[in-house]
Nucleic acid binder design. Structure first.
Ligand SMILES: NC(=O)c1ccc[n+]([C@@H]2O[C@H](COP(=O)([O-])OP(=O)(O)OC[C@H]3O[C@@H](n4cnc5c(N)ncnc54)[C@H](O)[C@@H]3O)[C@@H](O)[C@H]2O)c1
Ligand SMILES: NC(=O)c1ccc[n+]([C@@H]2O[C@H](COP(=O)([O-])OP(=O)(O)OC[C@H]3O[C@@H](n4cnc5c(N)ncnc54)[C@H](O)[C@@H]3O)[C@@H](O)[C@H]2O)c1
Lengths: 220, 220
DNA sequence: AATTATCTGTGAAAAAAATCACAATATCAA
DNA sequence: TTGATATTGTGATTTTTTTCACAGATAATT
């Protein structure tokens, strides 16, 4: 019981893809028992070599003849991705996006669930929003420490994002999923993943223009 | 009036960062007239060299003494990122997430706005949801072609994502922003950007565990 | 006007990520 | 048993992305 994280430092890209593989594998485990790297690659939209490399990280070997046994591979990925015990999550900002996020994660993943939501609006505090208890932000530190929360999701307006990040970190967060369109200033020991809709849409728009060949369309 | 896209093919990473720079620059253009690469780098959370490289893509040169003139740089970034005329967007799936997205983009970007939303639920069709007209999915092809829509946002359940993507592409989409946790199968000429919450949260959770050093905390 | 200090723009180098390509291995057909 | 075939795991290679580092530029200072 000593392995886990020291192999060669797995990249966040690989971790992300493993998460995606996991979902795909769960879907197809009813139909199939085993699959080959090229099959999983096709499902995931990556190359077979990429799949094999990624799978190396979880310490499981397939057989050249049958490929990967889905059940076992899933166990290995779960073991790699899932927290050993439990890793509760806090959501800050119960607005439009916050509620959608609560709805999205509700009832999934027992080990990685949103156990508390916070909002500075008193109307939202002390209620159960989508099955999740909502508290006033003032109680953030207390409740995070009570629950042992180490992950925060930021869904507050950009203007409040930095202070929210600071509060989360001060209360023990070591990972943050940030939806506010602001780069967060946090200690280097804290892992931040930004999800920036504007940036994503700008990027899609840019490549939607250049991806289309010279002449086309103009239907009747 | 010939330049724009053929320089050396700008990467999506650069495009994304330019979008981020733009937002930051807009914020600080009240306080400052000019800034240096290291200042913008600090704001954006990247290195100064990265900023300078990215800015090369928009064809603007700063002065070694004063840095970049914010107003002019913004013009160049706008010119680079924004569509020449107008690039209307369609949203498919007006559920929790869809409504949050409509709210988020409402009233911004005249050139890049969501002009139509679609849902298969008749209760949602033919209404104005957050300032955006909502139609039954059956009208997707017609309305996309009427409006000349080339960008689609997918916010339908995963099970309907592939068919939605196919419908979008068939109706002229060349770029898709996909929130459904499913890899989309589309022609290579269509640019797809996936936003996968589960994957993102898994990644944060993974690094939230390994990012913290051996011993710490346990405050009173 | 010379000196100093500091920046940009960019070729070159480094680092990171993806892909190639092949030995090792397993299976099957004859 | 042998040969043909197909796949894995991974070292080597390629490609992509980031960073380095410095020539050239600009302004302030003496
Ligand atoms: N709506 C979307 O689809 C979307 C998408 C991407 C990003 N975002 C970003 O996510 C954030 C939230 O978006 P939204 O649409 O839900 O906005 P919203 O205004 O609907 O919700 C924001 C919520 O945060 C609460 N809040 C404000 N300051 C707070 C603080 N200091 N502490 C705790 N709670 C606080 C508000 O009371 C409100 O309930 C914004 O930064 C937005 O830019 C939104
Ligand atoms: N809620 C979130 O925060 C969140 C976050 C990330 C990703 N997602 C993903 O986004 C998608 C939507 O999530 P949601 O929470 O809004 O779900 P939701 O169930 O609230 O909304 C889905 C909507 O899509 C409509 N729909 C279903 N099939 C359709 C079809 N074929 N054509 C047009 N409309 C159709 C439904 O009528 C419904 O209104 C899901 O794939 C989900 O996994 C959601």
């Amino acid at each position: 019981m000593n392995n886990s994280q020291k192999h060669t430092a797995v990249s966040s890209k690989t971790v992300g893809r493993l998460s995606r593989y996991r979902r795909l594998l769960r879907q197809c485990r009813e139909q199939e028992d085993c699959l080959f790297s090229h099959r999983l690659a096709e499902l995931a939209g990556v190359t077979p070599a990429q799949v094999r490399r990624d799978i190396m990280a979880v310490g499981y070997s397939g057989s050249p003849s049958k490929g990967y046994e889905i059940k076992t591979l899933l166990q290995h990925i779960d073991n790699f991705l899932d927290p050993p015990i439990r890793q509760p999550v806090a959501l800050v900002g119960v607005g439009n996006l916050g509620r959608a996020i609560l709805a999205f994660f509700a009832g999934r993943r027992p080990k990685l669930k949103i156990v508390a939501a916070f909002d500075k609006d008193p109307h939202k505090a002390d209620r159960v929003i989508v099955g999740c208890r909502c508290y006033p932000v003032e109680q953030l530190a207390d409740i995070m420490q009570n629950h042992g929360i180490t992950i925060g999701i930021i869904a507050v307006p950009a203007s409040a994002a930095q202070e929210t990040a600071a509060a989360l970190v001060a209360s023990g967060a070591t990972g943050i999923l940030n939806f506010a369109p602001t780069p967060l200033r946090v200690p280097a020991t804290v892992y931040v993943e930004d999800i920036d809709l504007t940036t994503s849409l700008d990027t899609v728009a840019y490549f939607a223009r250049s991806t289309r060949e010279p002449s086309l369309e103009r239907s009747t």
